[in-house]
């Protein structure tokens, strides 16, 4: 009996070994010359197979990129990092790949506490279903319904629902794939450039009075932001303030002005200009400062009035000596320029 076990084990092992060896030889002999770049590109892609690129899975996109049918930055999810990797594999310059990273942001603050309900909804717990019943339970027809369809569809677990019944997006985890944007029946989620910090968190085109009646934090179209903005970047269009993300410089003046706190930004992280010893007193910064926060005599080191500085970074760009750095609250001034930092 032990003999039989031995024989059967050996014979099966031998058979497997012979067949396996045959397959190894065959795989060498019949090897298909695939473009090796396809595998490399596939390796660089995130591998989530989310389909946001419009191709069937990551391998589909990899093939399309190598065949030139898709751009190197075709992967929305991977963003700039992946685009750069792919571009270097394909031997393209980074220029084509450097798409600004976009992330999803929730443009509604009307949670349970702020937005009034017009009806009690007891149906299926899904935004899409609720929105079909007379536009949803909230008084504002543009409001977030709050059942979290977006959180359910997010493949990266970047969306959680707050106690207040609003989606909270983890900006680190968000990849900008846009699935939540498509899922939201109220279109309160939008893909916005990552660099933009100021957002009008309301899309209600109701008249000011009507908005006020249904929501504490809705835009009432008072146009105060429009008047405050030094860069002509915010306008009230169709009863709701809209930010031109190209023009906005994150100065947050509109946030200060907004009476309903509809416009939001991380105030604690507001940037402040700091002038270091490289300043030669050319006064260019002082002339360009929209807030008149910079003072100083000609040929003497200038100073920034931190109270007045709005953090628009214009002085930083205008300074011919690179003497100005923008510092976020809590960060220490970095007196070195980018290139010498890199050289370290």
């Amino acid at each position: 009996m032990p003999n039989l076990i031995l024989i059967s084990t050996l014979s099966m092992a031998g058979l497997g070994f012979i067949l396996g060896g045959g397959l190894v030889i065959a795989s060498k002999k019949f090897a298909v010359e695939n473009d090796p770049r396809i595998d490399e590109v596939l390796g660089a892609l995130p591998g989530a197979n989310c389909g946001a690129c419009g191709f069937p899975g990551c391998s589909g996109l990899a093939k399309a990129i190598v065949e030139g049918k898709a751009p190197a930055n075709g992967c929305v999810v991977g963003g700039q990092n992946v685009a750069k990797k792919v571009a270097s594999i394909m031997g393209m310059s980074d220029a084509g790949a450097s798409a600004d990273r976009k992330i999803a942001r929730v443009l509604c603050q009307g949670g349970k506490a702020e937005a009034r309900l017009k009806a009690d909804y007891h149906g299926v717990k899904s935004c899409r279903a609720a929105s079909m019943v007379n536009g949803g339970p909230k008084g504002c027809p543009y409001a977030c319904i709050g059942f979290g369809d977006c959180a359910g569809v997010c493949p990266f677990d970047a969306i959680t629902m707050s106690e207040n019944g609003l989606p909270v997006i983890d900006e680190e985890k968000c990849t900008g794939c846009g699935l939540c944007v498509k899922e939201c029946p109220k279109s309160v989620i939008a893909l916005t450039p990552e660099k933009n910090e100021v957002h009008v968190r309301c899309r209600a085109t109701l008249k000011g009075k009507d908005t006020r009646a249904v929501c504490d934090v809705g835009c009432i179209a008072c146009k105060k932001c429009e008047k405050e903005c030094p860069f002509d970047a915010i306008h009230v269009v169709n009863n709701v303030a809209v930010i031109d993300y190209e023009k906005c410089r994150n100065c947050m003046k509109c946030v200060e002005a907004c009476p309903t706190k509809t416009i939001t930004a991380a105030f604690t992280e507001r940037k402040k200009a700091v002038i270091d010893d490289k300043c030669i007193g050319c006064t260019i910064c002082a002339k360009n400062c929209p807030a008149n926060a910079i003072t100083g005599e000609v040929k003497k080191k200038h100073a920034v009035n931190q109270e007045l500085c709005i953090g628009c970074s214009i002085c930083e760009e205008k300074c011919p000596k690179g003497a100005i750095t923008m510092v976020r609250n809590g960060q220490k001034a970095n007196n070195h320029c980018a290139s010498c930092n890199a050289a370290k």
Partner: peptide, 17 residues
């Protein structure tokens, strides 16, 4: 089953080629 699996692998390679 062992033989069948290997043969199919072989056919797969040949057809792909």
């Amino acid at each position: 089953i062992l033989v069948i699996a290997s043969l199919v692998q072989l056919v797969e390679m040949v057809v792909l080629k």
